[in-house]
Amino acid sequence: MRPCSLRWLALAAIALSVAVQADDRPVPDTLKQRIASCTSCHGEQGEGGDNGFNPRLAGKPAGYLVRQMQDFKLGLRHYPVMEYTVAPLTDDYMREIAEYFATQDVPYTQQKSPRLPASAMTRGEQLVTKGDPARNIPACSGCHGPRLTGMQPDIPGLVGLPYDYISAQLGSWRTQTRSTVAPDCMATITSHLSDADISAAAAWLSSLPIPDDTHPEPADSLTMPMHCGSVGG
């Protein structure tokens, strides 16, 4: 065979192998590829869906994210698609998935807040920053931090969440479609909130500008006003 045809043969072989690769591209062996079931609603980096109900996961503390998956699996938190999705997972795999989302650093989006009367926004601010001691309601910032960005490893941030999501979660704690291991602090707190309180707190939280540093506070940096089963587990 002449050198020229050998060269053509080599080229043809390369072309063929490229064509085969394109048709049968290997599946990436990455966690991101494996968890398409999570990212299709929560975003590739856990940045959250573009509706009010697929919350952001990026940067939330890993302990909190594991607790939520466990709560769905144990029937403490109810949402059929999530209960179905986490049921086949082991504790180890949940931990790995949680750490993937916890370590994503994605800029926050400023949420739109509903227009509530000024008195309601004042009430919201009071509940979030000072609480209502007369009604046994601690301030959100007591556990979720002065910047409301949460605390490692178990307490989520509240900034950058949509009004619909916050108000739906507070409501579902009251109706016990969302709960966690005892003592369930949020169940106790929400049992003291009125509908108007929930709306006011959610509206004020979603109206907050995104702080410069959105990372959770370091572990044990806050003295929490209550002992919660979901923390330190």
């Binding site: 599946v27 966690l31 590829q33 494996r34 968890i35 398409a36 079931s37 999570c38 990212t39 299709s40 609603c41 697929n54 698609v81 179905y84 999705t85 086949p88 997972l89 082991t90 180890d92 795999y93 790995e96």
Partner: peptide
């Protein structure tokens, strides 16, 4: 509609998954 993970087992501890298409 629901997508989901293959079961996580000793032989396949980190299964791949399928997106739920119910919202899409």
């Amino acid at each position: 509609l629901s997508g989901g993970f293959a079961p996580a087992t000793k032989g396949n501890p980190r299964p791949y998954s399928m997106p739920p298409f119910s919202q899409h």
